[in-house]
Nucleic acid binder design. Structure first.
Length: 681
RNA sequence: GGCGAGGUAGCUCAGUCGGUUAGAGCGACGGAUUCAUAAUCCGUAGGUCGGGGGUUCAAGUCCCCCCCUCGCUACCA
């Protein structure tokens, strides 16, 4: 009996590029969907860009283009990235679409008419110059608690105090720098508390993983709060039908994008939208999400659907966050890796396999350990799996014109055991326990390699025992085919190459219950290249930012310092005063012919005049990125004659004490306002 | 501060209701082999299961305290 299944991944926001953290989710979901399809189920996978809200609006404004244009550009970028990683959406749509507007309005109006929407006055920071209300992240000022400068409107990064945006001292609009004023406005609120009984029951319906249900209980205990669903103009989004100048908050119409994408697909293909989303639907509906957006998907979303006259999801599957080498992704460490960066250096199938090896059905975080990544992919994929075909296909081709044995040879029940193992593997996939599935598959690969070893086709060839040789290699190729079928959800590209090698119309779970006999296979070609650690190094180098001043957005966390004691003895102030530190502007930076570590810098020290300094920072900075930036220079350092010229000072940069990572180098910068030549101390 | 998850071999992880000498894969080391993308096969070493206390005939597994990591939360959801 085929199941009818609808699957979604969370919608990526149109303000940013896809990175390796996003890909945990898309790869996890895609594997599941491909698995369902491979098993013969009627499974559809929908997603879309999440396009609305202030950040998109502002970014478009900064770029001087219409938000629609920005959104469209990002849509294309996202789709290209997904395609490269073989994320096989059946439809990838946009929340900025007519379908989404109609559905959002329907959900809103039904809830409103049923009394689930109320109004309330909200006091907010408002910028007169920009003529808009400012979200917390768009206000900067001095922390009222510790006095740290230039903090966001919601919390201090320095002392982690939280406060209202209007409590900030010397608050400024992040866009224009003007101080905001306080202004109140009427907002619409979704009465989430109306749905508490329904939600409590839905939570216990098996829709949630145990950890998530626990989290929900916490929220229930602290009481469900009503949800502010409107924003005032100007806002990039959908205007609320009965409230001119007010727009749906982006998070209201974002999940509706799942439905809009479905609808758009159904219109194109003649399928029934209602069969998926209206009450009475017998389809299974699953949302894959990150644990950070649990609240939206397990409280607001089911409540909105319930109140809006739609069915609720069968289940929501949350996963944890990605860490790289055990730490949060970090731009300065070069571990904030965009999909694009990765694609420039490495094969997407490596990542798909590695993630699969680490994924479970629980909400645990997942670590991408790059050393482990290289070893594991090479050992498992190339060493164990591909090797099966590569060590036997040659014999089939050279000695038997590519034809497999016409009758399946006696193999001591090996093939049957592989087929049987498929049931367990399928159960792991179904439960999203990919790590366990991968282990089971690799155990089979070990068995297959052992079989070859024990039957030594190379000696059979020497002894000219052709029948036996043919049998052993035919068995091996058949075992290989089963393995690749089991791996197909994870490795669609390699599975496709295998399908081609074996001259099959398709690899399917059912199809491999019976072995291939008498068919002809094509000459063996490489199915997957081995990972070169140098590719990983190159990736990290490329992901490291070329320009230091961080964009607003993710705070850049400092690399941990080694916990060694201070290396040097204490000195009196007078000693320090002998160092003449000055602000310098880098007028020009250039590569130095014959030196692979150095950059030649032309500095402007203001009243002290121009200087030339050679600095060993080429590993971390490109010349272009330095032009015109300010930094700190030791101005009274004894000039140093070098092979390439005279160096008249030294610029200051931070690096690790052990100096293991040559690219972990960070130039110092004065805060804005400093001028070349200013004395530091 | 509150809550949650986690701390098991060099690395990544499994360890079901507490039960015999704590497991796997990778890596390391030693052998074998040469068909294969230096792949494969056999074998060896390596862990006071974060620390301390307790319950028990028996604790990685239960209870208490502490340390460390990560995350969420603290008039955002």
């Amino acid at each position: 009996m085929t199941r009818r299944i609808l699957v979604t991944s969370a919608l990526p926001y149109a303000n940013g590029s896809i990175h390796l953290g996003h890909l945990v989710e898309y790869i996890q979901t895609d594997i599941w969907v491909r698995f369902q399809k491979l098993r013969g189920n009627d499974c559809l996978y929908f997603c879309a860009d999440d396009t609305h809200g202030t950040p998109v609006m502002i970014r478009a404004r900064n770029e001087g283009i219409a938000p629609e244009l920005l959104v469209q550009r990002m849509h294309e970028e996202h789709q290209a990235d997904f395609k490269a990683f073989s994320i096989g959406f059946d439809n990838y749509y946009s929340t900025h679409s007519e379908e989404n507007r109609i559905l959002s309005e329907e959900i809103y109006c039904k809830n409103r008419d049923a009394g689930h929407v109320q109004t309330a006055l909200v006091r907010q920071a408002y910028c007169n110059k920009d003529a808009m209300f400012l979200p917390d992240r768009f206000i900067r000022g001095t922390c009222p608690s510790c006095g740290a400068l230039d903090q966001y409107g919601d919390a201090c990064e320095s002392c982690s105090a939280t406060y209202a945006p209007l409590d900030l001292k010397q608050a400024k609009c992040a866009l224009c720098g003007e101080p905001p004023v306080e202004k109140s406005s009427e907002h619409l609120f979704f009465r989430l508390s109306d749905f508490e009984p329904f939600l409590k029951e839905w939570t216990r319906s098996g829709a949630l993983q145990a950890e998530m249900a626990n989290k929900l209980d916490e929220w229930f205990e602290s009481g469900l709060k009503n949800w502010d669903i409107s924003r005032d103009a100007p806002y990039f989004g959908f205007e609320i039908p009965d409230a001119a100048g007010k727009y749906f908050y982006v998070w209201l119409d974002a999940p509706v994008g799942y439905m809009a994408s479905t609808w758009n697909y159904c219109k194109r293909t003649g399928r029934s939208f209602d069969a998926y989303w209206r009450p009475g639907s017998t389809a299974e509906v699953y949302h894959f999400i990150g644990k950070d957006i649990l609240y939206f998907h397990t409280l607001f979303w089911p409540a909105m659907l319930q109140g809006g006259g739609f069915r609720t999801p069968t289940a929501v599957f949350a996963h944890g966050f990605l860490t790289v080498n055990g730490q949060k992704m970090s731009k300065s460490r070069g571990t904030f890796i965009n999909a694009r960066h990765y694609l420039d250096h490495l094969d997407p199938e490596y990542l798909r396999y590695y993630y699969a090896c680490k994924l479970s059905g629980r909400v645990d975080d997942l670590d991408l350990n790059l050393d482990d990544f290289v070893l594991r992919v090479n050992a498992d994929m190339v060493g164990k799996v591909v090797n099966l075909a590569s060590r036997t296909a040659g014999f089939i081709h050279k000695q038997f014109q590519g034809q497999l044995c016409p009758d399946y040879p006696a193999d001591g029940g090996l093939y049957q055991s592989f087929v049987q193992a498929g049931e367990e593997i399928a159960a792991w996939y179904e439960a999203r326990e990919y790590a366990k599935a991968m282990r089971a598959i690799m155990a089979l690969a070990d068995t297959a390699n052992r079989y070859i070893e024990e039957n030594a086709p190379w000696s059979l060839a020497k002894q000219q025992k052709e029948a036996e040789l043919h049998a052993v290699c035919s068995v091996a190729i058949n075992l290989f085919r089963v393995l690749l079928t089991y791996l197909a959800p994870v490795l669609p590209v390699m599975a496709e190459r295998t399908r081609d090698l074996l001259n099959l119309p398709a690899l399917t779970w059912e199809g491999c219950r019976l072995p291939l006999c008498g068919t002809t296979i094509k000459p063996f070609k490489h199915l997957m290249a081995r990972v070169d650690p140098k590719q990983v190094e190159a990736l990290l180098a490329a992901a490291r930012p070329q320009e230091l001043p961080p964009q607003s957005g993710e705070p850049v966390s400092p690399p941990p310092l080694p916990s060694s004691p201070p290396a040097l003895a204490t000195i009196p102030l007078e000693s320090f005063a002998q160092v003449d530190l000055r602000v310098a502007r880098i007028v020009q930076a250039e590569l130095v012919a014959g030196a692979d570590k150095l950059l030649k810098l032309n500095l402007d020290l203001g009243p002290l005049g121009p200087r030339t300094v050679f600095a060993g920072i080429r590993a971390a900075y490109s010349p272009e990125s330095l032009t015109n930036r300010l930094t700190v220079v030791v101005a009274n350092l004894l000039p140093r004659k070098m092979k390439f010229g005279l160096s008249e000072g030294m610029i200051l940069a931070a690096s690790r004490e052990d100096n293991t990572d040559k690219t972990a180098l960070f130039l110092l910068s004065p805060d804005a306002g400093a001028e070349p030549g200013m004395k530091i101390g």
